[in-house]
Simulated assay, not measured.
Amino acid sequence: MMKHIIAGRQKGLSLLEMIVALAILGVSLGALYQAAGGASRIVQTSERYAYAVSIAESLLAEYSVVPYSGLDVSGETGGDYTWQVTAVPLPDDNDPPLALLMDIRVQVSWGETRSRTFELRSVVAGVVPQ
């Protein structure tokens, strides 16, 4: 008779075990979705940064020779990118200067809620207008 009672135990999951399993599944899926969302934001940020670098390099190539009197131009491109190019003569103690070299700065900014900026500096040739 005792054998019959032990053999009659219920097999399977209880309601409490099912609720705990669903809670663990929910937390795991939430963490997975959050990780995937963070990864996509990082990819988007790096793509926008690479585009800003490309704009700055293009502007530096376009202004590889600038007027020796200086330069200050700005503009914007599609996709909320704004840029500014400034160039000033490098100091030279010789009179007249040995070389007409210009310190050029290219700055590209983007973003509405969290503004970001990339700056590229170099030295380019200056030209005296004729």
Rank of each mutant, 00 (worst) to 15 (best):
A31E: 01
V123N: 07
A61W: 04
I19W: 02
R114N: 15
V123R: 11
V106G: 02
I24R: 07
I5M: 11
R105F: 08
Q84R: 15
N94M: 13
V88Q: 13
V65S: 11
V85S: 01
L15D: 08
D95Q: 15
L71D: 02
D103H: 11
L15W: 05
A39R: 08
V106S: 01
Y81A: 00
L100C: 05
Y49W: 12
L22E: 08
G78H: 04
V123P: 03
S46F: 06
L59D: 00
L59G: 00
G75F: 05
V124L: 04
L22R: 08
A7N: 14
L32K: 07
R121G: 07
T86H: 08
V73P: 02
S69F: 05
Y49S: 13
V106W: 01
S122G: 13
D92T: 07
V128G: 03
E76D: 09
G75T: 06
G38S: 12
M1C: 10
V20N: 08
S64G: 11
S74L: 03
A99E: 15
V128D: 10
E17N: 11
I42H: 12
L101Y: 14
E119K: 11
Y49D: 09
Q107L: 10
G8Y: 03
S64N: 12
G38E: 02
V27Q: 10
V43E: 11
Q84S: 12
K11I: 01
E62Y: 06
E57A: 11
F118G: 03
E119V: 15
V123F: 12
L100D: 06
A35K: 10
L71S: 04
G12T: 02
D93V: 14
L98F: 15
E76F: 04
E76W: 01
L32V: 08
V106N: 01
T82I: 04
Q107P: 00
W110F: 08
R114C: 08
I104G: 04
M18G: 10
L59Q: 06
G75P: 03
R114Q: 15
